[in-house]
Amino acid sequence: MPTGVALRDVREQLFDAADRILLTAGPHALTSRAVTTEAGCAKGVLHRHFADFDAFLADYVLDRVQRMDREAARLTEMAGAGTVVANVADALTALFGSVAVAIVALVTFRDELRARLRETWPAGVPVLTEGAIMLASYLEDERARGRIAADADPDTLGAILIGTGHLLFADRTGTPPAPDAVLDMVRKIVPS
């Protein structure tokens, strides 16, 4: 007699369940039992695929960072088109409108997760660090096109935009900032 439902992509199913829990209940609710219940599988499934729950969480965070590659590619394609301010504001809204804000809280919430991430990620919170790198790369392209000030420092601007954007979007349970607020913030930071 079968003991459960066949799982096609166990990792992705578990990661998607973690997304839903983080977005609806926050990092304090993210437990191995909550993830497997949300994913519709037995608790042992998670432990067959990951050494322990913190290993699962570290892989989950790094997987979500890798998903940012699509947004980075889209932003790179926007270089030279539209306005720099609108492109950056859209990228920040997409980033912080995703599970990223909840992941930042998760990484802050769990000491063991931070320790595991340090094994493969040198510094910072992976989602924020990768976002800053993505914005810096885009701003470098725009500086080369003459669309932002020639003396602008894309790396510094990327870090400032991520930090300030995180502050704008940090209250994941409240109303997200209005598009005009995001545009205004970017306009004040990015030198034209």
Rank of each mutant, 00 (worst) to 15 (best):
G44A: 13
G44H: 02
V45S: 14
V45D: 04
V45E: 12
L46D: 04
L46N: 06
R48A: 12
R48D: 10
F50D: 08
F50S: 10
D52T: 11
F53V: 12
F53W: 05
D54H: 14
L57G: 05
L57A: 12
A58W: 01
A58F: 02
D59M: 05
Y60V: 09
Y60Q: 06
Y60E: 09
V61P: 01
V61F: 02
L62S: 09
L62V: 13
R64S: 06
R64I: 08
R64N: 08
V65E: 09
V65G: 08
Q66N: 13
R67A: 09
R67D: 12
M68L: 14
M68C: 06
D69F: 07
R70N: 07
R70K: 14
R70G: 14
E71F: 05
A72K: 09
A73I: 12
R74T: 15
L75V: 08
E77M: 09
E77A: 15
M78F: 06
A79L: 08
A79C: 07
G80K: 02
G82W: 05
G82D: 09
G82Y: 10
T83I: 05
V85Q: 10
A86D: 13
A86P: 00
N87M: 04
V88T: 14
V88L: 07
D90I: 11
A91M: 01
A91G: 10
A91S: 15
A91P: 02
L92K: 07
T93C: 05
L95R: 13
G97I: 07
S98M: 08
S98N: 11
S98Q: 06
A100Q: 01
I103K: 02
I103Q: 11
L106Y: 03
V107Q: 02
T108R: 13
T108W: 00
T108I: 01
R110D: 15
D111I: 10
D111N: 06
E112M: 10
E112Q: 12
L113A: 03
L113M: 07
R114A: 15
A115H: 11
R116V: 09
L117Q: 03
L117V: 11
R118F: 04
P122Y: 02
P122I: 03
A123D: 12
A123K: 12
V125I: 15
V125L: 05
V125T: 14
V127K: 00
V127W: 00
E130D: 13
E130P: 00
G131I: 04
G131V: 03
A132G: 14
I133T: 15
I133Y: 06
M134N: 11
M134S: 10
L135F: 07
A136C: 06
A136G: 11
S137R: 13
Y138D: 08
Y138N: 05
E140S: 12
D141L: 15
D141R: 15
E142F: 03
R143Q: 14
A144I: 06
R145Y: 02
R145F: 03
R145Q: 14
R145M: 13
R147K: 07
I148K: 02
I148N: 03
I148V: 11
A152Q: 02
A152V: 09
P154W: 01
D155H: 08
T156P: 00
L157C: 06
G158C: 10
G158V: 13
A159H: 01
A159K: 05
I160T: 14
I160E: 08
I160M: 11
G163P: 03
T164K: 08
T164H: 04
L167C: 11
